[in-house]
């Protein structure tokens, strides 16, 4: 991932609203794939998104998209934005809305028509696009918003809380579209405060809190950086006591806790060293390991650790 070029770059960006600092010295680069932007309410997610989409100017630092300032109109050609607001133009049909947004992009009438049809097809809304926006479900509104964001085939798609309030079926459909876009080489930035979503959805995660970037990278990378919090690994095996004895001999294992009848919980300091060792042991001895799960490498757990560290 690190070899792929970045399309958007924040360089030491800060943003103040009067005396309140919303974003503090933030730097990162956005690459192809799905990047999750995670943080509690008021963390600075919306400010970061509005700086990226050229709706706000940074107080300090620079935001560049390709090689132009995000504030310039040219940068918006590369970005598709799907805001979290979804109560808009209730009287308008989904098709008319997407077409209108294509016209605002600068397309001529015929091009706008073609582009909007292609976008509606991509989000699987072609057959329902003539209904009024006011009659749509939450999931359908999200898809129409996504269609207007991708109508000009942007390289970067910024989605603000795209799965908020969407039912499981709609969520699965949207996630499928996000994945298709990411597979097509686009950079997708998804802001969310629902951390469970990010475990399976995001290739990379950026954790933000109180205007500061706490960490960014893949979940595994970030988890490994948290040296003060050893990785918790639960193993179910037929002979847990024998396995616990073996585990204690490994340098990467800091502690072992038996959880009767068949589980043991390990505290692992260097996962990169531990897992190959475990695999070697499992192959050599017959411990009959039934299940192995990392307990605290989810987005939520990592974010919890990061917040605790930031609090210190």
């Amino acid at each position: 991932m690190s070899e792929t070029p970045s399309l958007c770059r924040f360089r030491r960006v800060s943003k103040w609203y009067g005396a309140v600092i919303a974003l503090n010295d933030v730097s990162f680069a956005l690459r192809p794939g799905i990047t999750g932007l995670v943080g509690p309410n008021g963390a600075g997610k919306s400010t970061l998104i509005k700086l990226l989409t050229g709706q706000l100017r940074p107080s300090l630092g620079e935001v560049r998209v390709q090689d132009v300032s995000a504030w310039s109109a040219a940068a918006r050609s590369y970005i598709g934005y799907c805001p979290d607001a979804d109560a808009f133009y209730e009287e308008m049909s989904g098709r008319a809305f997407v077409r209108f947004m294509a016209r605002l992009r600068g397309y001529r009438r015929n091009d706008a028509h073609e582009r909007s049809e292609a976008a509606l097809q991509q989000v699987e809304m072609t057959d329902r696009a003539d209904r009024k926006l006011g009659s749509y479900s939450k999931g359908m509104r999200q898809r129409i918003k996504l269609a207007q964001a991708i109508v000009h085939d942007p390289d970067v798609v910024v989605l603000d809380e795209p799965l908020n309030g969407v039912d499981p079926v709609g969520r699965a459909q949207l996630v499928r579209v996000f994945r298709q876009l990411a597979d097509a080489g686009k950079a997708i930035l998804i802001s969310s405060h629902i951390l469970d979503e990010m475990d399976t959805l995001a290739d990379q995660v950026m954790f933000i809190c109180r205007g500061r970037m706490l960490a960014s990278g893949t979940l595994e990378e970030i988890r490994e950086m948290l040296e003060d919090h050893p990785l918790k690994v639960r193993i179910n095996a037929k002979s847990p006591r024998e396995l616990a004895g073996q585990m204690l001999r490994l340098n990467a294992v800091r502690g072992v806790q038996l959880e009767p009848p068949q589980s043991l919980l390990l505290e692992v300091e260097r996962p990169g060293e531990f897992f190959p060792e475990l695999a070697r042991l499992a192959a050599k001895e017959d411990y009959e390991i039934e299940k192995l799960e990392v307990v605290d490498a989810s987005t939520e757990a990592v974010f919890d650790y990061l917040l605790r560290q930031a609090g210190q």
Partner: peptide, 18 residues
């Protein structure tokens, strides 16, 4: 009014227009 009330302004400002 609705552009300000319902956040529709962001749709406009994220396009190529100022």
């Amino acid at each position: 009014g609705s552009d300000f009330q319902q956040g529709g302004l962001t749709f406009y400002l994220s396009r190529r227009i100022s």
